[in-house]
Amino acid sequence: MRDEVRLGDARSLRAYAHPLRMRLIGLLRGEGPMTATQAAARLGNTVPNCSFHLRQLAKYGLAERAPGADQRERPWQATARYTSWDDDSDDPAVRAATDSLNSVLLGQYVERAQAYLAARPDEPVEWRTAGGFSDALVHVTADELRELTQRIDDLLAPYAVARRGTRPVHLIHLALPHD
């Protein structure tokens, strides 16, 4: 699996900006190869719908058939650990597609936070005190913000692979310039 697949044209950005497609890729990245039937059961969706969207993801290089798949059981896998895109295009169609994709992504972040809040009372105290929300107002130039974001990415990199005794945790990083 590659580290990253980069989307740059409006069509691929719009194709990825579908909530179910983003959930499917997240599922394949988090849990490994699975069939459309398995994905549908995990996501509470239908097999034909998941199958269609997996084929669409494959069309744009985000998913592929897993090695060793036979005609009876046909698992899918993500092609890369991450999906990235640039937010600096001068093309209005690309900007609109990027804005749409970022909006879907933000909606998924909010859903994750709400799910965490709903499940939080059932978490062991060690996890309730370790998780949570915070924010910081920093004063930086655009170059410093890029550097800070890179340093955060570098800091998180060693924790990207599951290890014995660990649990997956979503760290959501938003860098939002303030008025």
Rank of each mutant, 00 (worst) to 15 (best):
A130D: 01
W127A: 09
A118R: 02
L105T: 07
R128D: 01
A78D: 15
Y82T: 11
D122K: 14
S100W: 01
D143F: 10
N102H: 10
G107N: 03
Y109V: 04
L137I: 08
S134M: 12
V104M: 04
T141C: 13
V94A: 05
L106A: 13
W76C: 05
S84Q: 11
T79C: 14
R74F: 14
L106H: 13
R146Y: 04
P75M: 01
T79N: 07
A142C: 03
A96I: 03
Q108H: 07
G132L: 00
E144R: 14
V110P: 03
E73C: 11
D143Y: 07
S103T: 15
T79K: 04
T129K: 07
D122N: 14
G107L: 05
S89H: 09
V110W: 04
G107R: 02
A119P: 03
Y82E: 14
E123H: 12
R95W: 07
T141L: 13
P121T: 10
V110Y: 05
Q77P: 01
V104H: 03
D90C: 03
L105G: 10
G131A: 09
L137V: 10
R81G: 12
E123G: 05
P92K: 10
T83F: 01
S84L: 11
V104E: 04
W76M: 09
A78H: 02
R120D: 06
V104L: 04
R74M: 14
R128V: 01
R120L: 08
L145A: 13
T129D: 00
W76A: 09
Q114R: 10
D86E: 14
